[in-house]
Simulated scan of single mutants.
Amino acid sequence: MLKIAIQKSGRLYEDSIKLLKECGIQLNNGNKQLKTIAENFPLEVYFLRDDDIPQYVYDGVADIGIVGENVLLEKNKDIDLVYRLGFGKCRLSIAVPKTMQYRSITDLNGLKIATTYSTILQKYLAEKKIPAEIHEISGSVEIAPGIGLADAICDLVSSGSTLFTNGLKEVEVILKSEAVLTANKNLSEENKNILEKLLLRINAVKTAKNNKYIILNAPNHQLQNIENVLPGMKSPTVTPLATEGWSSVQSVVNENDFWEVIEKLKQFEAEGILVIPIEKMIV
């Protein structure tokens, strides 16, 4: 049985549970247990503190884990990054008081910077050759400049509203982070096989979210142009309509290209374009 560690609370918990459910894995954690076994997949789930997950995976207590990339890099454990999951996106940034005139990173010279991410910050400052002092604290980093504990901070930023509320402005982005799936380097063959099955499901879910299924009607004299716009997974599906000279075309369009493709289809006389979300997509 494959053992997975996920956050027991916090910003990654809901999306981690949602992902497992979208993969068809049924969990029963109604009483907020710290451990549960999936009903229909060989998976045991541990609910842990985010900061502890890399250590549990490294020690082999958990085989795999879902954790923020920022935590993975900060803890610096020798475990594998298996899959970028695309949720929990944020950035680790340096922020200074709004009143400070900030021109470049050299303005950090000699300053005291408060952070929870001392390992990542130390590496970044060393690479930039900035001699700043790091003051490591465990929480409420954003208030450090206001109470005289530090001159600047290095912390996670999503919308930036917390920085604004505390009179700070973001000046340097150190790292762009998201939730990642990690794995112990010494998985048994049995658990490697289970992980491959899980990855197949995760990839099908994530690929589906990035694509749309479209159905449209088109005049036959424009089919070649439309097929060039809609390559689909291999090629579009084309079916003759009852109306002479017209066909129905079905294909898959990547979310990033969607509106550009729609505009081209309209130029080639496409009509009745239906856009349908895809639940799973196995390629």
Rank of each mutant, 00 (worst) to 15 (best):
L2K: 04
L2Q: 05
K3H: 09
I4L: 13
A5H: 08
G10I: 00
R11I: 15
Y13K: 13
E14G: 09
E14Y: 12
I17F: 10
I17D: 04
I17H: 07
K21L: 09
E22K: 10
C23T: 03
Q26C: 01
G30M: 12
K32E: 12
Q33L: 15
L34Q: 02
T36V: 14
I37L: 08
E39W: 00
N40T: 08
N40M: 11
F41S: 07
L43V: 04
E44D: 06
E44A: 12
R49W: 00
D52S: 14
D52E: 11
I53V: 10
V57K: 11
V57D: 14
V61Y: 15
A62I: 07
D63I: 00
G65D: 12
I66A: 02
E69T: 10
V71Y: 02
V71W: 01
E74M: 05
N76F: 01
I79L: 05
D80H: 13
R84T: 07
R84F: 15
L85P: 11
G86A: 13
G86V: 14
F87L: 12
R91K: 15
L92W: 05
A95Q: 09
P97E: 07
P97Y: 06
R103K: 14
T106W: 07
T106N: 15
D107C: 01
L111H: 06
I113A: 03
I113S: 06
I113G: 03
Y117D: 01
I120Q: 03
L121E: 02
K123V: 06
Y124Q: 03
A126P: 03
E127Y: 15
K128W: 15
I130R: 08
I130N: 11
I130P: 07
E133Y: 08
I134T: 08
H135P: 00
H135T: 11
E136Q: 13
E136M: 12
G139S: 14
I143V: 12
I153H: 04
L156F: 12
V157Q: 08
S158Y: 11
G160D: 06
S161H: 13
L163N: 08
L163I: 09
E170H: 04
E170C: 10
E172P: 02
L175Y: 07
S177A: 14
S177P: 06
E178C: 00
A179H: 13
V180M: 02
V180Y: 12
L181N: 08
N184V: 15
N184W: 10
N184A: 14
N186P: 01
E190S: 14
E190T: 12
N191W: 05
I194L: 05
L195Y: 03
L195H: 03
K197S: 10
V205W: 01
K212P: 01
I214Q: 01
I215A: 12
A218H: 02
N220G: 03
H221D: 15
H221L: 12
L223I: 07
E227Y: 01
L241W: 04
W246R: 09
S247W: 02
S248G: 08
S251A: 07
V253Y: 01
V253M: 01
V253T: 02
N254C: 10
N254F: 13
E255W: 11
N256E: 13
D257Y: 09
W259F: 15
E260Y: 11
E263N: 08
L265E: 05
Q267D: 07
F268T: 05
A270N: 11
I273D: 05
V275A: 11
V275F: 11
V275P: 10
I276T: 15
P277W: 02
I278H: 02
M281R: 06
I282D: 14
V283L: 15
